[in-house]
Design a protein around this nucleic acid. Structure first.
Length: 275
DNA sequence: TTATGCACCGATTGCTAG
DNA sequence: CTAGCAATCGGTGCATAA
């Protein structure tokens, strides 16, 4: 069975950079967490990850070719039927977790409680919020809303796509303060700090959600939107992000008939980037 | 005011390379 | 065996539509 979810192998197309061979210092300006909580109790402030979309994807067709079903139709399938469906899915759609969950869900059907009012009609998993359950239903569908322009892999979440694209672009926003090694995901950095250096990061929940503005073009990180926008305008004036930004400015100016922020958060959204 | 969608995030996990 | 990579998915904040 192909380990298709490991893009590292499957996307070894010509022209792809071998980022593992590139020193972190050569990848561009990257994020260095300054809020680390060590054994010594030293604590500083911290900011969190990436903001910019880079991979404009469309509701692509590649992932919808087989076994795509509407929620209404899938809702009529039993768990075993869903498992069978999964076994015939195209490689990158048949996710590991989906398969594992299918088994777990079958086992846990009897464990659902009445405390969670929203229950998945397919796997019977329960949720406290209706919108969470509704989104969960997507996991039973082969339809992927966002596709990677580099490898074609599909994702349900725009941010997941953005994070995935970093594996192609080499952007690694999370940098170890001890050894300079950089990572694409905060958890990878935290695991590294904990295991290798014995350093524990601790944040309040809010602190974790503070944004770090990452230029997906070069990996530069900024603490504010404005500084990031200035960077994009100066360094990457012809990038898709910059174009999407200017396009969004024009649109908003038309919609509101007034001045708009030169770089509002939504101006950098996936949708505005042509998704 | 409520419902909904989007975006971001962390926890978790399977896998590979060394 | 360990460290790191990459992916999935539920929780949550925010903006906007109804």
């Amino acid at each position: 069975m192909p380990r298709v979810f490991l893009v590292k192998k499957t996307s070894s197309t010509s022209g792809k950079k071998k980022w593992n061979e590139i020193p972190d210092c050569a990848r561009g300006d990257i994020y260095t967490p300054v809020c680390i909580f060590t054994h010594h109790g030293h604590e500083e402030c911290e900011h969190s990850p990436a903001e910019l979309p880079i991979c404009p994807s469309t509701p692509q067709s590649k992932t919808t070719q087989t076994h795509t079903q509407s929620h209404s139709s899938t809702a009529q399938l039993s768990c075993s039927a869903m498992q069978e469906l999964s076994s015939h899915r195209p490689p990158f759609i048949c996710s590991k977790n989906k398969m594992a969950n299918a088994n777990n869900e079958a086992l846990n059907v009897s464990q659902t409680t009445s405390d969670s009012p929203f229950s998945c009609p397919i796997c019977k998993k329960t949720f406290s919020l209706g919108r969470v359950m509704k989104r969960h239903l997507r996991t039973h569908s082969d339809l992927k809303r966002y596709s990677c322009e580099y490898c074609g892999k599909g994702f349900n979440d725009a941010f997941d796509l953005k994070r995935h694209v970093r594996t192609h672009t080499g952007v690694r926003p999370f940098k170890c303060t001890v050894c300079e090694k950089a990572f694409t995901q905060r958890c990878s950095l935290e695991a590294h700090l904990k295991k290798v250096h014995g350093v524990f990061q601790q944040y309040a929940y809010k602190e974790r959600r503070d944004k770090l503005y990452v230029c997906e073009e070069c990996g530069l990180t900024a603490q504010t939107h404005d500084s990031l926008c200035s960077h994009i305008q100066v360094k990457h004036p012809n990038s898709k992000i910059a174009k999407a930004k200017s396009k969004n400015r024009r649109r908003k100016a038309q919609d509101r008939g007034g001045s708009v922020s030169p770089c509002s958060p939504h101006s950098l959204s996936d949708a505005d980037a042509g998704v």
